[in-house]
Every structure is written in C-alpha cells, then in structure tokens.
Design a protein around this nucleic acid. Structure first.
Lengths: 337, 337
DNA sequence: TCCATAATTGGAACTGGTTCCAGTATAACA
DNA sequence: TGTTATACTGGAACCAGTTCCAATTATGGA
C-alpha cells in the first residue's frame, strides 16, 4: 500500500499539517523540520495523491476539451495550441472526441456535470441556447473555440468574411462561374457546426455584390471528407456549363476537389481554379491557394480566456476574433473573360 | 453551492446509503424510494461529484497518454483509436504532448506519480531501464504503443521487418542504388524513439542479403519533418551517383522526398522511386507507395491490453505485434538494370 | 529576568462520495 | 400466531489530502 501523509507524519514525528506544508512549499516550516520530512518522504517513496488533493481543494487542475473529429488536421492543430498553453499553466488536458451527433449531445451534457475538470473548451461545436443555459447552470467556466453562442466567451474568426475573401479573390481573377463545396447541411445542423454555413454565406454575398447571381446547382454539400468532396466536385464539374473555379469550405475538401479534377483530366489551375480554407499543413505541400486561419493560436487564446474566466467567473464576457489571410499559391489563376 | 448527496438524503427523507444506491443503480432499493430520490435529485439539480467519487473509490476512471508530437498524423490516428476504445469503456483520456526531451523525462517521471490516472499508455517513446523500474515502482499499469521495453507490455510492429519489406520491394523492382532518409539519431536517442532506427536496420539487412553493400552516403538523418527530409533528399539526389530509389522512414518524410524530386525536376517514379512508411491518410491521395501499419488499431489494442492489466495487474506480460503490409501505389516502378 | 511578539507546530474538522454492518419492515410459511 | 427468511434502509467509518485555530517554542527588547 502506498504511503499516506499520515505515515510520513508519524515516521517523521511531526504533525499532519507540517507535512502538508512541506509538500506545498509553505515558508512556515523550519529548515530542520523540512529536511527531516523530506528525508522521510524519500524513504517511504511517498507521493501525494492527486485525487485526494483535488478533492480537498475542490479543484481538479484539469481542463476538458470537447472536439469533433479530432483527427481533422485543423482540430489537431488547435488541440496542440491548447495543450501547449495548458501544460505551461500546470493543467492537464482531458479530451473527448465527438464523431456522432449522439455523442455530441452526451458530451455537452455530461462532461460539465461530471465535475471532472475546472474548465471546458469546446471546439467547433456551437451549443444550442438551451445547452448554453444548462452549461451556465453547472457554473463551469466554458470557452468556445471556432464556434459562437450568445453569452459564451469564445475565440473565432469571421467565417463569413473568410468566404467573401476567398470568393472575391476568384472574382478578381476573372472567374464568374464559381462553385462551392461544403459540409452537409443536415450533418452540420446535428452537430451544429457553423463554419461551413458561414463560409457559404460569405461566398453568396461576394457573388451578389459582384452582380453574379448565385446558382443553386453550383453549391454542393456532403459529409466532411476528401472522398465525399471528390464525388461532389466531380458531379459539379460534369455540368454542361461547369464552374471555372471552386471554393471548398476546408482544405481537406479542396483536396477532394483536386482529386476530382485529376479524375476528369482538368488541369489545375489552367482549366480549374481551386481555393481552400484553413491552411493546414499539407496545403503548402500541395501548393493550394487557401484562406489561412491561426489554428494553433486559437487554442492558445482559448486557454488564456478560459484561465482568466476560471480565476474570475464573473468577468465580463470576452470574445476574440483572430485574423484571416489569403494565401495565394498555385491552384488559382486569372482567366480571360 | 452545489447540492451534495447529504442534501438529497435530507430532502428526500432517506439515508445516505440509499441515495448512493440510487445513483449507482443498485437493485437494493424499492421502486417507490428510488422514484422519490430521483425526484429530489432532479429538483435539487444534484450531480454527483466525480472527484469525491474517484476519491472514495480510489479510481480516477481516467487513462493518461504520453505522446510525442501529437500532431504527427500517425500519432493522431493512434490517439483516435485510444479515445474510441476508452470512451466505450467509460474512461476519460488525459493527453500529455511531448515535444522536447526535457518534457519527455518530466512526463515519464511525474505522470505516473501524480496518480491522476488508473493506467498509462506511452506512444512511441521507449522508457529506459531505470525509467521502467521507476514506473513499476509506482504500481501504475502501463502499456507501450509503438515502443518496446523489457518487462513492459506493448503493441508494436516489427519495424526491422518493415524496413526489410520496403527495401526488398525496391530491390525486386531492380533498384540497386537505394537511399534511406530517417530521423536524426541524436534526436531519436534523446526521446528514445526506436522505429526509424529499426527501419534502417531492416533496410541494411535487406541490402546485405541481396549482396548490395550499404553505403554510408546513402543514409541521411534529420529532424523528423517534411522540410528537413526535403533538404536531406535534395542533398542525396545531387550526389554524383545518386540513388534511383529512396526509402523514407515515414510518409511525412517521404513527402519531403517527393518535394525534393520536384525541386530537382526528377520525375517520380520514372527517374526516382519513393517508398514511405505508415500509410497515413494523405499517402493514398499522393499515390505514395508505402508500408501500411494499423495505426488506429494499435491504439485500440493498447487500450485493451491496458484495461486487462488494470483489472489484473499481475497478469502475465503480453506483447502484441500488429501486421504490416506493402501498399504499392504510384511512386515506385521497375527499372532496367 | 520577564513579557510581548513572531515563528513553528499539531491536529480536528472538513471535502462528498462508497461500503458494509446492523436494524427494521414485510412476506412466507408452518 | 409465531418464526424466519427476505427485502429494504440508515448511517458510521473511511478514503488522503488542506485549512485554520490553538498551542508551543523561540526571539528580541526593556
């Protein structure tokens, strides 16, 4: 059986409180006593129990993260930022991966309730109003990353502006027939992902502003993934009057578009321009034109907001917008009208 | 203040034990009593405290994972397998990301000690013998994934065989001048990564078996990463007698090789064959020939071993080898002698 | 030398669950 | 009707820390 603080106290011939003070580097212990206690700790190979400690303190020194599809490169990069920021603050990171709507709902309900963590980060999932209420009722500090909900703090980008930026760029290159490939609406609804929807909005706005009527048959939606995007894009590119440019709501989907182009022997960018979103790691490798967002930083900043909120739960609600940037690479080009 | 089990007991007019039994679905409660308690629980919005629960049970219902560079696609995929397997067992996953040798050592020392978790999975890092001892002393069940250490259970592949498989394939295609790109030895040493080293061994063995003397100048090592591999490969390909085929110790590095070939206007596979390792997601997209290993499954199997060990810590040491498989795609071809 | 103050120290009470034993009510049966 | 087995129920003891108050010892100054 592992030694407890009482064993240490007994063997060292001191009181419980003294051992606790030694463990916690309290200055209220004489040098001699501290040394004696430390010796006994080493002798008994005593390790304070984190659980007991958490219990007594009422803190877990842990932050939970709910992330959908945490293998998606963009999510991974955010998680990395989160982990880095937490580790430097002495917090551990518990990760809940969500791959089904049912699990999304369960996690959103149970994780805050379980009091496993002192704070919660939610990535890319926007809680519904009633879920927000339930969250607030638990009193657990929450910060959203890449998602927005009324009365919850968060770190996001302006996805509508991102969609506009991408589309305007294509328009500026002379494209008029511009297609969009994004997440399945129903799917996005059940998870309540919002980014693809907002990017689509931005896309439509840009078209309208340029006097180009958005065409329904140029907008396709499917499960998020390279393969699905490939199928959608192939379909789109086989229209009798196919788009000359495609805007994909994520780089992953843009990769599917590139595959579709390859399938159909369409040269990119000569016959088809492609623009993605996120600027994930492979985008550079592929020479993919895309909208860059600061994924790692979004994690870092989310943690910062969360820690602030944990320190002072009644602090005013902060919401941070990270910048986006067009990264022009080799999958887009100017066309003659 | 949140309600406690005592509040519920008082309001419901029952004993502590009864409430506990209701919470834990014990059959030893009459229907009427159960209902009354459940009503009070709902009324008070009572949520059992996980911490107190853990404390009383002496279990955290949590498993910790130490992973190096958890943004590497191969690591992410293993983590996904781990998370999936844990979630179905009701365990939460705490992740520690290691990106420096110092943090590696800290994590390996502190995580088991802190008793934050009921079990520990270590990915790709092989503990040194003295670290193994320290681990065993804590009594925490440990399973290694993609790593090997004496007297610790683990899930791995045979990396030497993988290196041989890749190299023999290139030899069978007629290549005689075969280069190798792998992790920096010093770097691998300080983290104690072993896979790249073992794949190199397999490579050398295959060459020797085929009567091809391994050449030192055909073996390059650098920090793990696409960019570093690109530089190494460019260097290698500019030798006066360059290799006709390159074996990269990972798909990420193989991507760097492909970039290098592009830099030097070498057509792949016509002028250069490239083979990678892991079969990560993008490998298929790139048409990269590679050695496939079952990453997701390695996480799942690791969890299974761990749970078994947690249930019975004195169970005999199990070590599992997952199969590997050559996936021939478009970056390799037969050459004339 | 004595007293006030500061520096240490000890340990009871507390955190919120689980467990298990003892006690009570109820049902079944002779 | 009494006896006994069975079904429930209550709550003390326990888990291993932290905190804080009271007690003790040391220090400094008059």
């Amino acid at each position: 059986m592992a030694a407890t603080i009482r064993d240490v106290a007994r063997v060292a011939g001191v009181g419980l409180g003294t051992v606790s003070r030694v463990i916690n580097n309290s200055p209220l212990v004489s040098h001699a006593t501290r040394q004696r206690v430390l010796d006994v700790i080493a002798e008994l190979r005593y390790n304070p129990s984190q659980i007991a400690r958490s219990f007594a303190l009422g803190k877990t020194l842990t932050v939970a993260t709910i992330a959908p599809f945490f293998t998606r490169p963009s999510v991974v990069e955010r998680l990395r930022g989160i982990e880095a920021a937490l580790a430097s603050g002495g917090y551990a990171l518990v990760v809940f991966n969500v791959e089904t709507p049912a699990r999304r709902d369960n996690c959103l309900r149970d994780v805050p309730r379980s009091q496993r963590a002192d704070g919660l980060l939610i990535i890319s999932l926007a809680p519904q109003p009633e879920e927000v209420l339930a969250l607030q009722e638990t009193g657990l500090p929450v910060v959203l990353i890449d998602a927005y909900a009324d009365s919850l703090p968060g770190v996001t980008i302006d996805d509508v502006a991102g969609g506009t930026l991408a589309t305007e760029y294509l328009i500026a290159l002379g494209h008029r027939r511009i297609g969009f490939i994004g997440d399945l609406i129903a799917d996005a609804m059940s998870f309540n992902f919002t980014s693809s929807r907002h990017r689509l909005e931005g896309y439509q706005q840009a078209l309208v502003s340029a006097g180009i009527p958005p065409r329904d048959d140029y907008q396709r939606h499917g499960l998020h993934g390279r393969y699905e995007a490939r199928v959608l894009a192939r379909d789109l590119l086989e229209l009798s009057e196919p788009p000359t440019a495609l805007f994909a709501a994520s780089d992953t989907q843009a990769m599917g578009v590139l595959e579709a182009a390859r399938d159909l022997d369409l040269a990119v960018p000569d016959q088809l321009s492609v623009i993605g979103f996120d600027d994930i790691d492979v985008a550079e490798y592929l020479g993919l034109t895309t909208i860059r967002q600061l994924l790692f930083e979004s994690g870092e900043r989310g943690v910062e907001l969360l820690l602030k909120r944990m320190a002072n739960p009644s602090a005013k609600l902060e919401r941070e917008y990270l910048p986006i940037e067009l990264i022009a690479r080799g999958t887009t080009r100017r066309i003659a009208r």
